Computed example of a mutant assay.
Amino acid sequence: MTPRPDSWIDAPWPGNPRVRGLFTSRQGGVSAGPYAGAGATPGGESIGGMNLGSHVGDAPQAVAANRARLAAWLGDVRVAYLDQAHGTEVADLDRWDGASTPQADAAVTATPGVAACVLVADCLPVLFAAPDGRAVGAAHAGWRGLAGDVLEHTLQALCRKADCKPAAVHAWLGPAIGPQAFEVGGDVRTAFVHQAPEAADAFLAAAEPGKWLANLFLLAQLRLQAAGMPLSQVQGGGVCTVSNPARYFAYRRDRVTGRQAGLVWIAARSA
């Protein structure tokens, strides 16, 4: 088996040994062209990319090979890919048939060996874990999803499934577009500040009048905190996809590009 790339990020969960979390990168696959990995081999050939998105124009056989490679690295874990639409729908993977593609931007499950998975290329992947590994979840959070409460909906679904309070849940923020690269219009800022005045702290005036630099990581932290999660239980954040072309696909940077994944699952046995 091909070694797993060092650029992938494991997300450990303190006090939750049965939960596993992972953020992939653009490295480790077979995709070519704009979906390839950055750089070249000593022979001048492009390095294969780990594009996991089947909707971005990549060769279907390459995507299938990448997903098969991920499955081999994960072992006895089934990955539930979603049909994402920048919405707030949360899929219940305990009802998943194992073959279909749920239409949702988040998912929760209490079934060991089923990975909740979101695909991203600048949007923020957020992973959740309830105490004692009773349930896990993943959410795809761009600015539209954040403003529409996708994190709150995911947290509520997770807490219902695990019979716990938001204060007992832990979360991981994966790589996403950083605040120095995410320029938005005033309508985006207004959408957040209208809901919560403290969201103004997540926006800095850009060089162009009427434009703002938005901090997705801070916006997510503020939303989770308002939903009842202590910030001490929110890990990760701060890794920018746009400024790391060797590691990450980024839609804002490249437009035609692949997708990396954020995954979380309950292991059959604790480590």
Score class of each variant (00 low, 15 high):
G33H: 14
P131T: 00
G185Y: 14
D83F: 06
R247V: 09
I177L: 11
H86C: 15
V242G: 00
R189P: 04
A162L: 01
R189W: 01
G137R: 03
C123D: 14
P5T: 11
S100L: 08
A261K: 03
L263M: 13
V150F: 12
L151P: 01
P34D: 14
A271V: 04
G113K: 11
S25D: 07
G238M: 06
G186Y: 11
D105F: 09
A32Q: 14
Q260D: 05
W8P: 09
D6C: 09
W265K: 07
P60I: 08
A200R: 12
G186W: 13
K161F: 04
W265T: 13
G237L: 03
G137V: 08
R78H: 10
V169Q: 07
P12I: 09
R253F: 00
L124Y: 03
R269Y: 09
R252P: 04
A59D: 15
D187M: 14
H170K: 11
R134T: 06
G75I: 09
P14S: 05
W8N: 02
G133F: 05
D92K: 10
V77A: 06
T24M: 09
A138K: 03
A64E: 11
A202F: 05
A226D: 01
P230S: 13
F128G: 01
F217C: 00
Y81M: 02
R67M: 01
L151H: 04
R223C: 04
K211Q: 12
L204I: 05
R189I: 07
E152I: 13
L173Q: 13
V184F: 03
P3E: 07
D94I: 07
D76A: 13
G148A: 15
E89F: 02
C117P: 10
V56Y: 02
A11R: 02
R95K: 13
G210M: 08
V118G: 09
T190W: 07
A115M: 09
P42A: 07
W265A: 02
P14W: 04
Q156P: 04
H86E: 15
G258D: 08
V184R: 05
L158Y: 00
G238Y: 10
V120Q: 07
A141H: 02
D58P: 05
D254T: 07
I47L: 15
G87Q: 13
H86V: 14
C240F: 03
A68H: 06
H55S: 13
A168M: 12
F23W: 11
R255M: 07
A202S: 11
A71Y: 01
A99C: 00
M229R: 06
T24N: 09
H153S: 09
A40W: 02
E89T: 12
S46F: 01
G43M: 12
A99T: 08
D163V: 14
Q195E: 14
G258M: 00
F192W: 10
G133M: 02
L204H: 01
A220Y: 04
L70G: 08
G262A: 05
P3C: 01
G142P: 07
T257I: 05
P175L: 09
A106Y: 07
A121Q: 04
W8Q: 07
V90P: 03
L216N: 02
A267F: 10
Q61C: 05
S25F: 03
C159V: 12
T190S: 15
G53F: 00
F249N: 00
V150C: 13
